[in-house]
Design a protein around this nucleic acid. Structure first.
Length: 873
RNA sequence: GGGAGCAUAGCUCAGUUGGUUCAGAGCAUCUCGUUUACACCGAGAGGGUCCGCGGUUCGAGCCCGUGUGCUCCCA
């Protein structure tokens, strides 16, 4: 097979992905091999591939492909999440564009549109994952609203209700005024906002014109005020406690109470208490038995409690009311103030605390075993620093609000009779059976849906039908899954809750390792976002650079446990790496036609080539061991860097040059075959990271019986340390002599004569040819004495004399030697100081002292060599 | 307000139990070079007060304290 001049990714990628699928390599069935299970974090059904997905799924694919090549039975399950609020928002927007209001539709009509939309646009992302080469088992594609899955979610709700772990309660929740639904705490994003602090005076209910001044950032909430609170020890207000004041504009009479919750230094030290619109005020109200007055409609406009502003949005009212208060003389002061405001993750609306009747999961009971599983390292977090974050959250866990005022999702299985009694069961028939008193009564189902995460916390179980068909062969084989790869942002949303569900319903943890990826940011460290326009088009990048280059680029820039700053230049590096791989293969193919088939073939492999082969074998084994341990510790980026260096530097720059035959000369068959074998091992090592080009080249090298994708790694050979060291010495000698040539401005084309003065000539004799080739020497000789008019280079205890035709720049040579001498002398001094320190000799471990003594001896020898060289100049 | 983490070369990061010539890698930069795989290349070089201060120790990039700056999570 002839290789084209350049590697062209497009066709190759399509060809191999289709081949892998046709061969069924990605499909898994339970068998005798150990399972390696990964469930994809299901992207939103509305999703399109972005850089975060690219990173996350590349990592999963690396782990899965590696497991496959290690002879395990990997199963990577794809799927999507119905994403109730995000999807409903998109469908509503789509309908609005068509001139249809959601309010004009029945629930069923709306869901009809939603399903239609889901079938049309949902799961585009799954198609895009194929482009990246992800080895997902497509036959197992799941959706969180598949019929079985839906039933399971309902079953879990009923079960937790029966166990008393789900309850209905009126609580302060986060209200999204745009989506008109409750949000969980995790769906609220806190941001700093520049606002104003309003100092407002309330007239006291006593003779004369006496006032108390409060400070607030939300003057529009005064209509909900039911008390003013001060600190009991605050001398300014002590005499007012127990008295009353009037809310401006509406003149409601409210009590002045005392509580040590108040911070005296903050604002005026007097707090207006609005139990309906602030969580802290609500708690305070509960404690003091205050009235709760709601002043907002569900869309964020003011209601009849604020007659003069009724129907106006609260944010708008904030501006108007300041003027009105000022006009009436009740606005005492206005100052700039920065405060934290909660925004809806989905709609970006400012979230309002709102009192409402919602469904809750009691988390305290579920949290215990889930915390223990992580703290005991039964589940391992990578990086481990997230254990702290996890513990802190679990220790302070709050109940989970799971009802959402939406239609798209799993409808809450609760029914109400006309009197408002609540009955919970799988369906109406089950209700009648469970609660016989309901027979014949008119029942209405709760119109709300469940939080999306209430279905995704069952993902690792239900993708194998572990709950809809308990104890089936697949769940028993694939569960617990092996590794979960996800973003730290959803550690509480998802990871913690999956652990809870796993413990609750399987009695087992859902996964053994959790790898948290970093967040993909742009070059300046900003998060990628649509509004900033700094999110590159991933498919465009794949078209431009090839999928392998994109995978390389994102992985090489992705230090374990840190965010990664995405820069297109790393994709360029990936593309260049493709070229390097391609060109190395081209070189090998060129030699294929020059294999020595004659008499020489029977002869021994030339000594220098034999050395090169031994050395690379050792280097390869050592690196395989290294990569193996890095991957075990999830240090993927480092593993890739290591492989990159092995291929580019050790194989291409050193090994291939060392065995390269002379111009149009033959190559020994053993050397050729070994080189092909090495190269194939490199491709195999790299394959999980860059699957397409490696598969292509694997087949290009020679006729293969097996695809690289499923070729199992062989046991790693023993590492020959002596050969490794000899190779390192050779590289060092070559670099040093090349440097000497450079510094003395010897042109690359000008061959030199090299004289070596060493106590160990044999070490050099077997690598003479390599050395001569690499430093362009026309002769190599061994000497006992110095050589006149030559460039002298000292390395360890050996000296090298370079004889060139041109004049020698003794000045710069001398300068370098003197520099080196000074360095060595300084080093020697520090070592001697250490050794003459009695305390060091007494306290340090013997092996450390031995090392110091060797350092001293080496330095002395080296100084002697340099001094001799200097003497000759 | 509570909690977690980070600070090492121009940039992004390694640096394990305190001890080897330990101060490293990749990218970027500079010099030289188109020699028969590759200029998407080759050969070579320069570049750091390991954030500041104090402490423990024979010995600190690493341990302790403290200050400064930054990031994230939660309220």
């Amino acid at each position: 097979m002839e290789l084209s001049k350049n590697y062209i990714p497009g066709e190759v990628e399509t060809k191999w992905y289709k081949h892998w699928i046709d061969q069924g390599y990605f499909h898994s069935e339970p068998n005798d091999k150990p399972a390696y299970t990964v469930v994809i974090p299901p992207p939103n059904v509305t999703g399109v591939l972005h850089m975060g997905h690219c990173l996350n799924n590349t990592i999963q694919d690396i782990l899965v492909r590696r497991a496959r090549m290690q002879g395990m039975n990997p199963c990577w399950v794809p799927g999507t999440d119905h994403a109730s609020i995000a999807t409903e928002a998109k469908v509503v927007a789509m309908l609005r564009e068509r001139g249809i209001a959601k309010s004009s539709l029945s629930r069923d009509e709306f869901l009809g549109y939603a399903w239609e939309w889901k079938e049309k646009y949902g799961g585009i992302i799954l198609q895009q994952l194929r482009k990246m080469g992800c080895s997902l088992d497509w036959d197992r594609t799941s959706f969180t609203m598949d019929p079985d899955y839906y039933e399971t979610v309902i079953k879990v709700f009923v079960d937790l209700y029966n166990k008393g772990k789900i309850y209905r309660g009126k609580r302060m929740i986060n209200w999204d005024v745009r989506a008109k639904t409750a949000l969980s705490d995790e769906e609220v994003i806190h941001k700093e906002v520049n606002g104003k602090m309003y100092h407002i005076r309330y007239k006291l209910d006593m003779p004369g014109e006496e006032y108390i001044t409060i400070a607030t950032v939300r003057p529009e909430t005064i209509f909900g005020d039911t008390a003013i609170c001060v600190h009991p020890k605050d001398d300014r207000y002590k005499n007012l406690v127990g008295k009353h004041a009037f809310v401006p504009m509406i003149n409601r009479r409210i009590p002045i109470i005392a509580d040590d919750y108040i911070e005296m230094e903050f604002g005026t030290g007097a707090l207006k208490v609005t139990p309906a619109h602030d969580i802290n005020d609500f708690n305070l109200g509960q404690k003091h038995g205050l009235e709760v007055i709601e002043t907002l409609n569900e869309d964020g406009t003011m209601n009849e409690e604020a007659p003069m502003y009724m129907g106006k949005d609260r944010i708008e009212v904030r501006k108007i009311i300041a003027d009105d208060l000022e006009a009436s003389g009740n606005l005492v002061k206005l100052e700039d103030y920065v405060n934290q405001v909660g925004f809806s993750e989905r709609t970006d609306a400012i979230v309002e605390p709102r009192l409402s009747l919602q469904w809750w999961v009691d988390m305290k009971q579920l949290a215990g075993p889930a915390l223990e599983a992580v703290m005991s390292d039964e589940i391992q977090f990578h990086p481990a620093k997230f254990k702290n974050v996890y513990r802190h959250w679990m220790d302070n866990i709050k109940d989970w609000c799971i009802s959402r005022q939406l239609w798209w999702g799993h409808r809450i299985p609760a029914w109400y009779d006309v009197d408002g009694n609540v009955y919970v069961a799988e369906n109406e028939a089950a209700v009648n059976e469970k609660y016989p008193e309901t027979k014949g009564k008119t029942l209405t189902q709760d119109s709300d849906c469940l939080d999306t995460w209430f279905s995704s916390w069952l993902w690792p179980i239900e993708v194998f039908k572990g709950m809809s068909n308990p104890n089936n062969a697949e769940i028993n084989y694939y569960y617990p899954t092996s590794t979960l790869v996800t973003a730290p942002e959803i550690i509480f949303f998802w990871v913690a809750r999956m652990i809870m569900a796993g413990e609750e319903y399987m009695g087992k943890i859902p996964f053994k390792d959790v790898y948290f990826t970093g967040i993909v940011r742009d070059k300046q460290g900003r998060k990628m976002s649509k509004s900033l326009g700094n999110s590159p088009d991933l498919l465009g990048l794949i078209d431009q650079y090839g999928a392998d280059a994109v995978r390389f680029g994102i992985m090489i820039a992705s230090p374990a446990g840190n965010d990664l700053l995405f820069d297109e230049s790393t994709l360029e590096q990936g593309r260049n790496f493709n070229s390097k791989l391609w060109n190395a293969a081209k070189l090998l193919k060129m030699w294929e036609t020059r294999i020595d088939t004659g008499i020489n073939n029977k002869g021994d492999v030339p000594q220098d080539a034999a050395f090169a082969m031994d050395w690379f074998q050792a280097k390869l084994s050592a690196t395989q061991v290294e990569v193996d341990s890095m991957l075990k510790e999830f240090r993927l980026s480092e593993a890739l860097k290591t492989i990159y260096g092995l291929i580019w530097d050790d194989y291409c720059s050193w090994y291939l040059e060392w065995i390269k035959p002379g111009f149009e000369q033959a190559i020994h068959a053993d050397v050729y075959n070994k080189s092909i074998e090495f190269y194939d091992s490199l491709l195999q090592l790299l394959h999980p990271f860059m699957p397409f080009i490696t598969e292509e080249l694997h087949h290009a090298l020679k006729t293969q019986t097996e695809d690289l994708c499923v070729k199992e790694y062989e046991t790693i050979g023993k590492v020959d340390e002596a050969v490794l060291n000899a190779g390192a010495l050779l590289k060092n000698v070559i670099s040093t002599l090349r440097d000497a040539r450079n510094k003395n401005q010897i042109k690359p084309k000008d061959a030199i004569d090299l004289h070596i003065q060493s106590e160990n000539n044999a070490a050099y004799q077997r690598i003479e040819n390599i050395l001569a080739k690499q430093i362009n020497a026309k002769s190599i000789a061994y000497t006992q004495a110095s050589i006149g008019s030559s460039i002298v280079v000292a390395l360890e205890k050996d000296k090298f004399y370079l004889v060139a035709d041109q004049a020698i720049d003794t000045a710069s040579l001398k300068e370098n030697l003197l520099k080196d001498l000074a360095h060595q002398q300084g080093f020697l001094a520090s070592v001697e100081k250490k050794l003459s320190n009695e305390k060091f000799v007494q306290n340090a471990k013997p092996e450390i002292i031995a090392i110091e003594q060797k350092k001293k001896a080496d330095a002395l020898a080296r100084i002697q060599t340099i001094e001799e060289s200097l003497a000759q100049l």
